[in-house]
Design a protein around this nucleic acid. Structure first.
Lengths: 331, 331
DNA sequence: CTGAAAGCGCTTACAG
DNA sequence: CTGAAAGCGCTTACAG
């Protein structure tokens, strides 16, 4: 390793017989360079094998082309599809994604924001809910675009791209009622948003004349094993449920497996609803009724916002990408 | 957004009554600064709310503190635990991870390497196998540390931290034999390494006197649904298997679910072995026998290598972190 | 359409 | 232990 010094812009310019300014323009805004000149530069770049130093470019141009994406974790997360789509979308535009982990409880959210700011990122994409007002202000004072995703706060820090978890809860309640179920049971991962959905469900259910639904808390990140244990815990309930609304498809899947082993038929004896509409929801036996969130759409909207911002265009501050209940065999 | 100009080092220095050089030293190598001076600087940093511009620091110091991690995908990947551990480990040292996606077929591997180099990353962590010799040379000519993970090539580009997939294949073959199974069937995701494991399995199995195992190919990334369809495809085999070796725990899980629905008892009528030792392997019913790869260990070794490199220490070029067959109920 | 030159905000020999 | 100064490799008004 560590051999020859890399080629700089200056050497390309010398070879092409132009100034570094012109090479820089050719590389960044080719339309501003005469085509004959451009061709000479192109040849010089190729001949030298020039690779731009983006750190220098970032400092000089005050644009890092770095986007920080902050998620609780990635080992197994409902956000993964969104993050993947985001990385793909953004890299097309010449940006790179710095992925930071804030922990299942989002404990490292504010510190990771500080670090991202120090990195001079052009934008910060948040999935967690930021309650610290000082950091909120610091974020607003910075020149970075801040995109809150998955949620849809009343008063976004900057821009929000997501959907209403309250609406999801209410919609599921209506769905459950329309299917004729009478005794819903909720399995609620202790994340702010899952709790929000559960509350909204209960509210809607009760206002529609139902009894207050029973519910159980599980830790985050949610996983398959919780589904199994949750099924077993069902026998502790005085009122046996006829439908279980799970905070994630993983929980739903575990619940179904355990139910099958116990000889409880899904959905005949017990209906199950998941959340996230992961691939496995459609692949499971029985297939799992779930709530679809379009991660690709979130990523596209976020990218569009970033682009508009970079060009100084005005942008909406709340973009609702919606959600969809996908009815399948399990409920 | 876009308010007041950020504080610079110069303003901190002025407030503390020292030069920018001293502030920079205090921030990066506090031991080189007198404690009284350091205290004044600390106070000045706090009073001004100074946030260092890491892009400038990177350019001046020729050290970006950026590590590129290249993986095929993250929606659902066996590498996720490793990537998560890597991000955690590295961020403790003040580094950030740029996550780049190379595609399930690794088609974007070389282009993402170019981009990472342009970013002046201190290190590139690869999970895919790099066969392009030119890029290999370019990588070696760069000053970036290159860490190949998960695999353990004979001749690493720079440093390799992983395990032998061939050894995994052979070890599974011995395990299967020791358990008395006679007719293994392999479900092989078409990734280079899964194919390597399958070949090694077959080789060992045959050299131990077994009949050539049957096998079926599935696409990457592997998933639950493939397990279900693979089970159904088993009936096409002229010789019904007594054990199925799956390329991932997701396949194994899908296979078990489908077997249960079909009334085939696991492991009594059909044993199943997974790969990856995901959390669900221990949570599934029956629990899944799998191969454990310690992602945390890989991340720690990689971090150790990076640190040693940064300090100019010499380092090993091949670090074998091993693997472990975890025998559970399914086989 | 192009160039000379200033400047982005740091780090680091070098000298003391 | 500390400072003056050069320099990292680009971008971008500004002027022509």
């Amino acid at each position: 390793m560590k051999q020859t010094r890399p080629i700089r812009l200056e050497e390309v310019a010398a070879l092409a017989g132009v100034s570094t300014a012109t090479v820089s323009r050719y590389l960044n805004k080719p339309a501003q360079v005469a085509s004959a000149t451009g061709e000479r530069i192109r040849a010089a770049v190729e001949a030298t094998g020039y690779v731009p130093n983006m750190m220098a470019g970032a400092l000089a141009g005050n644009r890092s082309r770095l986007i920080a994406v902050l998620v609780p974790e990635i080992a197994q997360s409902l956000f993964n599809d969104t993050v993947e789509a985001m990385i793909k979308e953004l890299s097309v535009e010449g940006n790179n994604v710095v992925l930071a982990l804030t922990g299942a409880d989002n404990a490292r959210l504010t510190s990771e924001i500080e670090i991202a700011l120090s990195r001079q990122v052009d934008a910060i994409v948040l999935t967690g809910i930021l309650s610290d007002n000082e950091v909120r202000r610091r974020l607003q004072a910075s020149s970075a675009t801040v995109i809150e995703t998955w949620g849809l706060p009343e008063d976004p820090i900057d821009v929000a791209v997501g959907f209403s978890h309250e609406a999801v809860g209410k919609e599921i309640a209506r769905f459950v009622q329309s299917r004729g179920y009478r005794r819903p049971h909720l399995i609620v991962p202790q994340s702010q948003r899952a709790v929000q959905r559960a509350s909204a469900f209960a509210e809607q259910w009760i206002s529609d004349g139902g009894e207050a639904p029973t519910q159980m808390e599980v830790s985050v990140p949610s996983h398959f094993g919780q589904g199994r244990s949750s099924f077993r815990a069902l026998s502790d309930l005085t009122v046996p449920p006829d439908v279980v609304i799970c905070g994630s498809d993983w929980i739903a899947q575990g619940l179904i497996v355990e139910a099958q082993v116990a000889g409880v038929r899904v959905p005949d004896k017990l209906a199950v609803i998941g959340f996230g509409n992961l691939r496995l929801a459609g692949d499971m036996r029985p297939t799992i009724t779930s709530v679809d969130v379009d991660g690709g759409r979130i990523a596209r909207e976020a990218t569009r916002v970033l682009k508009a911002r970079a060009q100084g265009e005005s942008i909406e501050t709340r973009i609702d990408v919606g959600f969809q209940i996908i009815a399948r065999e399990s409920a």
